[in-house]
Design a protein around this nucleic acid. Structure first.
Length: 586
RNA sequence: GCGCUUGUAGCUCAGCUGGAUAGAGCAUCGGCCUUCUAAGCCGAGGGUCGCAGGUUCGACUCCUGCCAAGCGUGCCA
């Protein structure tokens, strides 16, 4: 409908040009919007006000000219000039009713589009270090990322979801050492656990299982473990030096093969847990991409070589630097440390090179907002590699601050003191959690009140939308109990009986579904879909309270049934797109 | 200090990329269940859109400068 009006206006602009009222070179973008107020009709354009200045006339006069030359269309039954120069369109009600038939015909397909035209898009998200269970902060990234991916799929992109597994580097060494130290405790050794180790209970569980399965194979006397290790911070030393020394000691005492066993024991348990957790949350990935493999197959070396060949690497203070400041970064960055180890940044360069080599038209990274400072250096690296950095889109998700009532909850992976995604799901359920996460704009700081989300009653907006769906189902059950049958065609032939204010409101909302979906996808703003669903549910509940659907009059009854079934269909389409259930009764 | 993000009702947040009288939920107050589920509906109160300028027919929206909050500013990841 919108497109139709745009093309009508386009024609008028051409006529104005040919009459010399408008400059031929002028090529205005024509804006047609849904009106907020029904008194302003169904659609409105600001075209006359935009063109008033170049046409050297006042907006209302120009608007009158536009209206007078606007080609007639059977769908438009009234055009009005209003306010400072708005042109308002009133759409023929019969035309509006078409949406009900269309929704019925297309069913679950309704609203999907092909605007993405099969372009290959990769969405990388969550990618939490496999050093512990996912917490509620990761949950937001998971919900947002999968919503983005599903929305893009719905509008015709070829989407691939990926989780980048940071299974290499120092954090994993700390994890491995933490597991090993807990394992030694299981064996009966007495060791002081480092301040900087992972202190969570799950580490003990892994250690317990390791001990149960492999006995004392990895046991070493505690004297050897702690001998000549620099003091921890609690003893007035440096906690980083302390843990690094313990890592080295673990590697020496165990040898690379046994050390790797402990490493694998930790990684497989934690990663398995993460996979299962996400799956239960309704989030799946096509690819779990291992950083370790990237390291082992020479990709990092290759990436560094390419940077070097392009003249972007230099040595300083024993380290190798990437001169990212030439390409818009604040300062240059180290890629190989003076001890010969590559930095996380180096493997990330290789990872992004790999992504682009895989031929995606667009690569979307969803990062926690605390990584925003990282964007310029990644872009710099992509430019240096000669890649098209405009293919990269980084979406930031602000952290959720957790509250329980007014009490702010701590969030620290290292101390093991955090609320897990699993806990959240078991407290509030998958549906509420997903809805809640995606309800807010992603770049908005979010206060997540567990007490509020836990209250299973009125405060969870997800129930409001689900209830609307369940209510329609309930009406259909009632229809059955009364011994009536739904007569689809009779209803469709009498849609013009739907002339109540609330009925027209629903129809208007329904007609916005497709464009809402498209906008939500292209702008990466799933909350728009949530807001749409709340509005539709609100329209429905209001209607439900004001009018009886199951009337004695079969024509009216069936017309209304068609309307509420279309509503049910759209609620179901929207909710299932967000991976939220659509209960038939509540 | 510099950079990014944010600032809208008592609280949590929308505001369709510059449009018409700034909206919703919660909370407060007042109504609606012998009639399709009251997890619902209707009504009332509540606003200097952080502050000050600027741009134009028009600014919550764009620009500049302040103020405030969060994050970043590692040879950590």
């Amino acid at each position: 409908m919108k497109q139709k009006l745009v093309s009508l206006l386009q024609q008028s602009v051409e006529i104005l040009k040919s009459k010399g009222i408008l400059d031929k070179k002028l090529n205005p973008t024509i804006n047609v919007d849904h009106t907020r107020d029904t008194r302003h009709g169904d659609f409105s354009t600001n075209l006359a006000m935009v063109l008033a200045k170049p046409a050297a006339t006042n907006p209302r006069q120009l608007a009158e000219k536009i209206i007078s030359i606007l080609p007639a269309d059977p769908l438009v039954f009234k055009i009005e000039l209003a306010g400072p120069g708005f042109i308002n369109f009133f759409i023929n009600a019969d035309a509006q009713f078409q949406i009900i038939k269309q929704i019925h015909d297309e069913g679950r397909q309704f609203g999907l589009s092909k605007i993405g035209s099969g372009k290959k898009v990769q969405v990388e998200f969550v990618s939490a270090n496999p050093t512990g269970p996912l917490h509620v902060g990761h949950g937001r990234g998971a919900a947002y990322g999968s919503a983005i991916a599903d929305l893009l799929t719905a509008v015709g992109f070829d989407v691939s979801k990926e989780y980048y597994v940071n299974d290499a580097g120092r954090q994993m060494d700390i994890l491995t050492t933490s597991v090993w130290l807990r394992y030694l405790e299981e064996c009966g050794e007495v060791v002081t656990f480092p301040l900087n180790g992972y202190r969570g209970e799950y580490i003990r569980d892994i250690a317990f299982t390791l001990h149960k399965n492999r006995g004392n194979e990895y046991r070493r006397p505690s004297e050897l473990v702690t001998e000549n290790i620099p003091a921890d911070e609690t003893q007035g030393g440096d906690k980083e030096k302390h843990i690094d020394a313990l890592i080295d000691r673990a590697k020496t005492l165990l040898g690379s093969s046994l050390y790797d066993d402990v490493f694998q024991a930790g990684l497989s348990v934690i990663l398995g847990d993460i996979k299962q957790d996400l799956e239960e949350f309704g989030v799946t990935f096509e690819e779990w991409f291992s950083e370790k493999i990237l390291m082992e197959n020479g990709s990092i070396k290759e990436a560094l070589k390419r940077l070097d060949n392009a003249g972007y690497l230099y040595k300083k203070d024993g380290a190798t630097w990437f001169s990212s400041s030439q390409l818009g970064d604040d300062k240059d960055r180290v890629v190989v440390r003076d001890n010969g180890q590559v930095t996380y940044f180096a493997s990330d360069i290789a990872y992004h090179m790999n992504k682009l080599d895989r031929g995606f038209d667009q690569v979307i990274n969803i990062w926690g907002a605390d990584h925003h400072g990282y964007i310029p250096r990644i872009r710099a690296a992509m430019q240096a590699l000669g890649a098209d950095e405009s293919k990269l889109k980084v979406l930031l998700v602000q952290f959720a601050i957790l509250f329980r009532g007014t009490e702010k909850l701590p969030m620290s992976t290292r101390s093991g003191d955090f609320v897990t995604l699993r806990q959240l799901r078991s407290e509030v359920g998958k549906d509420a959690a997903r809805f809640f996460y995606v309800m807010r704009k992603s770049d908005q700081h979010m206060n997540f009140d567990l007490k509020l989300a836990t209250s299973k009653t009125n405060e969870n907006p997800v129930f409001y939308v689900q209830y609307a769906h369940a209510r329609v189902c309930s009406v259909l059950r009632q229809l059955d109990e009364k011994g009536w049958k739904r007569d689809l065609l009779l209803g469709m032939d009498n849609l013009n009986l739907l002339d109540e204010e609330y009925e027209l409101a629903i129809i208007t909302t329904l007609s916005k579904y497709s464009e809402t979906l498209e906008r939500a996808a292209l702008q990466y703003e799933p909350h728009l879909l949530i807001h749409f669903l709340r509005e539709l549910a609100n329209n429905f509940h209001t209607y439900y309270n004001a009018h009886q659907f199951l009337t004695e009059d079969a024509t009216l009854r069936n017309a209304r049934l068609n309307l509420i079934c279309a509503t049910k269909q759209i609620l179901a389409n929207g909710l299932s797109l967000l991976n939220i259930n659509t209960p038939e009764s509540m």
